[in-house]
Write a protein that binds this DNA or RNA. Structure first.
Lengths: 317, 317
DNA sequence: CTGAAAGCGCTAACAC
DNA sequence: GTGTTAGCGCTTTCAG
């Protein structure tokens, strides 16, 4: 039909005809059926975004950035929350694939060597870009921060502020967690500092960060600095520290990563490392759209967002 | 095809045949195309969720609740962020409708009397349920809190704690904002308290809440209690108050609404009113699924979640 | 229990 | 510029 062309604003249609069609469309309250369109055109104009935790404002901000970037191009985004559960994530990805999304952006909770999921995506020929969590063996575009740099930056900052017994609440054993842990170790080594093994604990969110800090705070000797692998863990840690009657930043200095929007409203405003979350979302979306647009697989691009230190009271002298 | 039946787990297929089909499916790595399925079956197994702000953890939690409730039933949710912009919201709704979602859950940013959007939804025969923000003229299921009760509860609490000059940072002039404002006025009247007009200011998030509080804190006489219409505004307000060198809760007591998850980690832990956000999402989803399931339009159900007071330091004696 | 026939609402490619 | 012919990959209905 000519109608189809009018709806899609194709150029090759007479202005008079177009007017007539438009009028009738309005009259009938016609709305094109995107499902049928998707089937015929073999594109859905939908992309999937998978994040491990929507409650973490870092990811909510990324979602916003992605959304803002693709909306003007006529795309919608389906947001999925994997709850940091890799099996669940895997099944979510399959569903999105079955729904024929045109592309995928994922902050994956997969274990580092578990490339099975990515192979499935590639088998379907669906372009995707990784964010926040990098997988060395996966040959795909990546947008995120340099986690080792983050780890070094945070740890070095604590050292500069006079901390000598620096503990680390590390994340789950993949992606951003391992890089930051490595950066932490490097910075320590560089400064000639050594710490007991018990100074490295693990957590994944505010609740577990709280638990981890409760363990750290009773160690002897007690740490005088704690680097949390993200803001929620650092925030939870601060709660535990203060509850134990220990002063921040007097007795223990704390730093996190992510610069969540309420950081400076906390009981003790939290020093943190900004990763440019909105930028990550936006850049990832742009790369994805570019990939979708061009037929040929270009060289996967990697964008590293420079981390910046945000100084607040939790690491004040 | 018989394959179709196997995929959908229809009962009427021989166990032997099923086995063969399944084997071949696995072999070919076959995955059904949901777009084609949706077109033929006239259902997408997709529902839309529209919220005004994903960064507000209240809505993120609702999204989580909705998602958790519908996932097991084979549905997916498309989350849209309206940015509190009613024109944008309206166009988002149209897109979701064009994508043939089976249902809609919305926390709408429409002005109270602007029922046009809802009529469009109904014209398409798509079931929907309203959450958080109620529209008196719209005959649809609603799940949310009783905003007047919330306003009364918060204000009464401040009065009980000894406040006499209670200011209110009201929300945008619709849905939850007006109810809470009304409850505030009622509680004040009931206690025989009067306040100058300037004690009621407006905001919509943490940034504007901060601005509002800067205006309130310089009033003469200065308020001794502030009721923020949600936690972000109350949080922003606290920042402004503390910056002005005024003590919380000593000189001004503050209460919010929403019980965002970091409330008790704030500089001054924030007293608030819990609305049961996860429950809202879950209940809304259940009602929607029930409506989708049954052919006939049943009487729209309304679920009012009982608000509960969460006491923290910001309103301590 | 199995499969053939028809069609969901649209777009692609091509002829008029 | 316009309309025609196919067919996207599935489900529905109903006959074998």
């Amino acid at each position: 039909m000519t109608v189809s062309k009018v709806v899609r604003a194709c150029a090759d249609v007479g202005p008079e005809t177009r007017k007539r069609v438009l009028a009738r469309i309005n009259e009938l309250n016609y709305q094109p059926n995107w499902v049928a369109r998707s089937l015929a055109a073999r594109r859905t104009f939908m992309i999937g975004l998978i994040v491990p935790d929507l409650m973490h404002s870092f990811f909510a901000e990324i979602a916003k950035g992605v959304s803002a970037a693709i909306r003007p191009l006529g795309y919608d985004v389906v947001i999925c929350n994997s709850e940091e559960d890799c099996a669940f994530e895997s099944s979510e990805i399959d569903r999105l694939l079955a729904r024929q999304v045109d592309g995928l952006i994922l902050a994956s909770a997969q274990p580092p060597s578990w490339v099975d999921v990515f192979e499935r995506i590639e088998a379907r020929g669906v372009p995707y870009v990784l964010i926040d969590r990098r997988f060395p063996d996966v040959h795909a575009p990546y947008v995120g921060a340099d986690d080792e740099a983050i780890g070094r930056l945070a740890t070095t900052h604590l050292i500069e502020r006079g901390c000598r017994r620096i503990a680390h609440i590390a994340g789950p054993p993949f992606a951003p967690g391992v890089g930051r842990l490595k950066g932490y170790r490097e910075a320590l080594a560089e400064a000639g500092l050594t710490v007991p093994d018990s100074y490295v604990d693990h957590a994944k969110d505010d609740a577990t960060g709280y638990e981890a800090a409760r363990r750290l705070v009773v160690l002897d000797p007690r740490p005088d600095g704690i680097f949390g692998y993200n803001d929620p863990t650092a925030t939870g840690a601060m709660k535990a520290i203060l509850e134990a009657g220990v002063g921040i930043p007097g007795e223990i200095k704390v730093i996190g990563v992510g610069n969540v929007h309420y950081s400076d409203l906390l009981r003790v405003p939290l020093s943190t490392i900004d990763q440019g979350s909105a930028t990550i979302g936006q850049q990832a979306a742009e790369i994805l759209m570019k990939t979708i647009g061009s037929k040929r697989r270009r060289q996967p691009r990697t964008v590293i967002i420079e981390p910046t230190l945000i100084l607040r009271e939790s690491t004040a002298r």
